[in-house]
Design a protein around this nucleic acid. Structure first.
Lengths: 131, 131
DNA sequence: TAATCGTATTATCACAGTTAATACAGTAGA
DNA sequence: TCTACTGTATTAACTGTGATAATACGATTA
């Protein structure tokens, strides 16, 4: 079964293309949009369809492999690796980022009550409740 | 009255020095650690004490002036400008960042309840309540 | 066996950040 | 008024990173 994977890159972004590609696939894998063992586009095919250099794709894939997000082998291709730990680690990273920003807000004279009130609104609006 | 302003830069950081300097001063001004009208170190003096090139300081100051965070004049020096709008805009920027990360958490199968519970703990621990 | 796969290497280019060396005009203090 | 300091501008050179290009090699699959 061959699944078509579509990612998009922004040539005007300050974020380097190789990291855009890496993060797009990371997101697809962490959210299970691409399932464990599923085949990813080949280096040359993806480079061709995105009109960017194969070396740039290779670099993105190399980083993903180093992080354990994919598994690749010559002649066979590149395959997604799903790992419970990856998702959990990503969640903790995000909470660290949230903590950092909340600290910043505190230095800007925002009280805990105000911050929590705004966050409640945001979650109510952006996130579905009750699982 | 002359106030000594101490900022630190990290030469190993991926963040360019000029932006480190810019953001350090921005933070000092937004948190009122440096008050409105207060004199900032001269380009050459700061460059000397941080052991970096004057042009790099100049660039940081130029950006701060473009953002209205400082006011500078040849022969006189550089002075902090405090503006209520600046702080408010910074707060809104931070809430936009928070929103973005919360959306990411939602895609990672976190429910609104779980996110809010963790955020309550973080705020309790990191931010003083009751103003 | 031919085509496709990942992988590696080398070279070249573009761009951003940094440093360096000056230069000039405005301001403040002695 | 002179001197020293201010911000500001300009030009050149160097550096590291990201991207492209052109190959090459071994493994795998149909």
């Amino acid at each position: 079964m061959e699944v078509i994977i579509i990612i998009s890159i922004d040539h005007r972004s300050a974020k380097p293309i190789c990291y855009q590609v890496r993060d797009e696939f990371k997101k697809l894998i962490l959210t299970k949009a691409v399932r464990n063992g599923e085949k990813l586009p080949s280096v040359r095919e993806l480079a061709s369809s995105l009109a960017i250099n194969p070396n740039t794709i290779q670099r993105a894939y190399r980083e993903l492999e180093n992080e354990g997000m994919i598994s690749s082998a010559p002649g066979r291709g590149v395959f997604a690796v799903w790992n419970e730990g990856h998702a959990q680690r990503q969640i903790e990273t995000h909470f660290s980022e949230l903590t950092e920003i909340i600290r910043e807000l505190a230095t800007l004279d925002m009280t805990g009550e105000k911050i929590l009130a705004r966050l409640s609104e945001i979650i109510e609006r952006e996130v579905k409740m009750h699982d």
